[in-house]
Every structure is written in structure tokens, then in C-alpha cells.
Design a protein around this nucleic acid. Structure first.
Lengths: 225, 225
DNA sequence: TAAAATTCATGATAAAAGTCATATATTGTA
DNA sequence: TACAATATATGACTTTTATCATGAATTTTA
């Protein structure tokens, strides 16, 4: 099994602040898992007894609303720590995590890592920074949800996906989402998401082929009102 | 000047986890401020070089959206720490804080308290918990914004204000907000907020007299669809 | 206290988004 | 491959929410 000490993925998250010794110990108790596209990592109400270090792939964090729709609140990607909140709270999780493509993750049990949070202040400060950052992003999303149109939110989502995850060789977005996923990120009905994407196509802002979406006019998308 | 060691307000926030010695030191460098209703504590883009311990009063944390409307993302109340994020990030703040009634706060400079965050793991763990909690709440707000109607959001806001801040002797909500504040919490136009409040009045769910709002049927409000 | 300014309230109308129906395309699978 | 299941697409219509206009009530300020 690969060793945390040598894993480059940790450079992207708080685990980089653990000492060599701590990493060796963590490495000894972690479990590596392969998760298939569509598979549930954890569900709302589950006790998540540890944290997942995402070595590859992308998953969505979502919450079921009263009307039965899933709202995606964050995409968790390669390099991210998934389930950080479970380390500091005793509550069950308020979110579900579902893989958007095939993933490879390492699961580190809470019992092993929580002591490091107590002892290694550099580590806990890093986790704190991470969470502060998540919080800022969440605030931004709240404002967007409240004040922007579906068109704007969807345009911004496309730009975000383009900027954050880049494109395949054929210039299509490398993250492949269903129209329902788009609707659930933007917070709208599936039909509305589809309709807006169709508009974008007609305006030459994007082109699509099945689930593949190609950004044709990035600046145009940024200017959507 | 009053001393942090003896201040009961800290029981409600992470400062309770500081040691006696740390509190004495903090007490020596803190500044107590009185802030008038409507006064700005800090604004989006400001460098907030410390944290405010709210001894009395309530303020709103809001963010200006592109269309010029303020979106309120959180109410900060007696006992809360305001500006915790500034302790862990170097960035300017993304939110504005404005007093909703007369406030008394203590300002603790970042330089003095950040070392405690490094040394006192109980304290940093507490801040971490606090932020995890804020994050969970923010996720809930995102889902509400995305999936619920203005009616529902406004009803929930009233219930939240009632549950969290209670009522005056005359049974009116003790937090007094303008219709614009309600609109900015719910994320809607002022006229829409007013209209929905009028509906609630007609339905006997609330009664109003100026800015004072009295909950007449709490269960009814909770049932609003 | 009176005038000015702001906030609250409501109607009329427009725009945005949701819902339902249905058709087509795509994907998964026996 | 053919069939079933699922996802995408679009039209017709309804509901929700925003915008603009205007007047009344309340609050602020001189």
C-alpha cells in the first residue's frame, strides 16, 4: 500500500502540516478505497467517523430539501479533504457525498487523527483555514442564490467548472454532469436548467454533445445577465 | 474597565477555553466599544485586525451583491464572537457588520489572540467547532434559498427570530428589523417581503404595529408552505 | 412641532421560473 | 442488437416573484 509520507496529494490539503511521525502513524491505519461513479460515500444522517483524502476523482456534497430535491453545496475534488467537519463535531453529517466519476480515496479514522488536531497546532490551524475558506465560499453561494437569476448562476457554474477543472483534449469540460446535477447546483428545476443551456447554445456561448459541454465563448458567459 | 476573567459573556463562545493567564493578558489589551444602532462595525473589504466579543446587542453580517442589494448571511448576537475568520485568514473581510440595535463589544487585537490559537489547543478546537457549526448553518441557508419559496423563508425567519431572541413583555419580537432587513435576509424584493408579511397578517399568523411584529400563531407559521 | 425624508403598503403589470405533458435521444442491459 | 430505462428537449400553461407607480404612515431632523 502507498504511504502517506510520500503521497503528493496531501500537499493540497491540511495533511501537509502533519509531522513525518504523524504521517507514518496515519499511513498505518488508513484504508484506501476505490469508489465507482454514482456510488454513495456517505449519506445525510450517517455518522462519518473520519476523514477522506481524495486522491483522484470528484464528488458532490449535497443536501436533500423538503421537496425531495437534492441541493449540491460543494464539489470536492482531488486533493481535498472530505468530511473535515466530522472531526470536530459529534453530530451526524448534514450532507451526502456521491462520486461524480471514479474515485480513489483514503479513509483516515477520526480516532487516529483527532489527537493530532489537539497536539499539532500547525495542523489544526490549517484545518481552521480550510474551514474559514469553505465558509467564505458558502456565503458567496448564499448571495448568488438569493440575488442572481438562474441564467447567471448557470453561466457562473460553467465558468467555475472550466476554471477549476479544465477541459479534455477535445476542449469539452472535463467534469461531466447530468442536467439534473446542473439543476441541483444552480437550485432550479431540471427543465429550467435544460432550457437555459439550450439558450446558451443558441447564443453560441456553449455547444453540447450528449453530456459533454464545450465552452465556446468564455467571456460571453461571464457577461451573462 | 471590566475584566475578561470575570466576564460571563465569554461562557457563550470559544473564549471560555482560554486559561486564566491568557484571559488576564487579553483583558489588558482589549478595547470596549459602544456601537449605536445602524453604525458600521466593519465593511466588506476592510482589514479586520481582531475579533469582537459581543457583550450586548445584535448585528447583521451582510454582503453586497452585484445588483446593489445587501444579502444578510447571519445575525450575530450577545455572546457570539464576531470576525473569527479574520484570525485565520490574511484576506480582507468578505462581509459587512452593521449594528441592529445599540451594542457593547470588546475588541481583541489579532496579534494578541492568534498566539493562543497556536498554543491552546482547547481554544483552537473550540473555534474550529464554532466554524464547523457556522458552515452547517450556511449549507442549510443555501438549501433554503434554492428550494423554498419566499413565503416559507420569511415564515422560517420569523420562527427563527422568535426561538433565538424571544419576545418583549408585550409579546412582540425583541429583534426589530426593517422590512428591508427582512427582504435582505430572505433574499427578495422589499415589496415582496412586505406583501408576504401582509398575507401573514390577514391569515392571523402575525400582527404588526410599525416595525414591531407579534407572532400570533407559531405553529401556523411553521406549517407555511 | 412641522416639514422633510424615509419606510410601509398595495395595485397593476411584467418577467422569471416552475409544472405538466409529450416527444426524442441516449444509455444500459438482457 | 433490440428493448427498456433513463436523460434530454421543448411546448403550453401556471405560479411566483420583481418592478414600477403611487399613496399613507412613520420616523427623522431642523
Amino acid at each position: 500500500m502507498s504511504k502517506c509520507e510520500q503521497c503528493i496529494v496531501k500537499q493540497f490539503n491540511s495533511l501537509k502540516s502533519l509531522t513525518k511521525d504523524e504521517l507514518v502513524r496515519i499511513s498505518g491505519c488508513k484504508t484506501t478505497k476505490t469508489i465507482k461513479k454514482g456510488e454513495v460515500i456517505f449519506e445525510e444522517g450517517d455518522v462519518v467517523n473520519g476523514v477522506f483524502c481524495v486522491k483522484d476523482g470528484i464528488c458532490k456534497l449535497s443536501k436533500l430539501s423538503a421537496n425531495g430535491k437534492d441541493q449540491i453545496v460543494k464539489l470536492v475534488v482531488k486533493g481535498d479533504l472530505l468530511g473535515q467537519r466530522s472531526l470536530v463535531t459529534e453530530e451526524v453529517t448534514n450532507l451526502s457525498a456521491v462520486a461524480l466519476n471514479d474515485m480513489e480515496v483514503c479513509f483516515i479514522p477520526k480516532s487516529e487523527i483527532v489527537s493530532d488536531l489537539q497536539k499539532n497546532s500547525k495542523f489544526s490551524f490549517d484545518v481552521l483555514k480550510d474551514m474559514a475558506n469553505d465558509l467564505r465560499q458558502a456565503d458567496d453561494i448564499i448571495v448568488n442564490m438569493a440575488q442572481k437569476s438562474v441564467r447567471q448562476r448557470l453561466a457562473e457554474t460553467l465558468v467555475y467548472l472550466y476554471d477549476s477543472f479544465g477541459t479534455n483534449p477535445d476542449k469539452t469540460l472535463s467534469v461531466i454532469l447530468s442536467r439534473e446535477d446542473y439543476a441541483n447546483i444552480v437550485g432550479t428545476a431540471v427543465e429550467s436548467a435544460i432550457r437555459v443551456l439550450s439558450q446558451f447554445k443558441k447564443q453560441g456561448l456553449i455547444s453540447t454533445s450528449g453530456k459533454k459541454i464545450k465552452i465556446e465563448d468564455l467571456e460571453g458567459l461571464k457577461r451573462v445577465e
